[in-house]
Amino acid sequence: MENKKVIHKHSLAIRWLHWVNFPLLAVMIWSGLLIYYANRVYKLDLGFTTITFFPEWFYDAIGMRRRLAEGMSLHFAFMWLFTINGVIYFLYLIFSKEYKLLFPHRRALKEAWLVLLHDLHIRKGLPPQKKYNAAQRIAYTGVIILGFFMIVTGLAIYKPAQLNWLCATCGGYEAARIEHFVITILFALFFLVHIMQVILAGWKNFSSMITGFETKKIESNDHKRANLEHEKSKE
């Protein structure tokens, strides 16, 4: 029978936490938009043009007019699941020591630059990497930090009186609201880049987020190892 080399990329816990987070984050962003619609005032003035958050066609396209109460009840129910999943994920990273594969290492900034040049087809070849390259390390760690601030700013907006010290730490109520909103936009941008990268990386990479492993052809020294393991199992 033919053998294959199996590289275990993602543990069962990581895969579950990742795919549980996906619909939860979607519900949080969706209900957040329903809430935001009630006071849709944020604009970004770039000098030559102004970006309105969001244009009216956007609300029409996804049918989200006047659903504040629904948005709030969804947001304040699913916030628990989103937070719990995030906390478990973080604790898992720390206790399984998997953070060593994920958090940026010392050479991260320099290497991330090389990865960027490579991805833009300016430079050939990538620095050697383990599970993630430096750019991925920075992006994935960044998104964990964003998640943390999402919860902190959310709590500051939710209980600005009882947790007024938290609200003050965020720079006040209005600042906390803007931060919460900006983090959402950053999450959405991360999502877009993430999807693009996953598409570019191909099916095997995507599949490994579901199965946990990627397969490779067996090289000559792998054959030796396979034989050894075979011998061992006979003993």
Binding site: M1, I7, K100, L101, K130, K131
Partner: peptide
């Protein structure tokens, strides 16, 4: 921390893949 590698036969690879995808779509 290193990434674990193993040698599996094709049948095991196929079965594990099917199982994972079934669980994924069911969930």
């Amino acid at each position: 921390m290193t990434i674990k590698e193993q040698i599996w036969n094709t049948k095991k690879v196929r079965n594990r893949t099917i199982l994972s995808f079934v669980v994924f779509f069911v969930m």
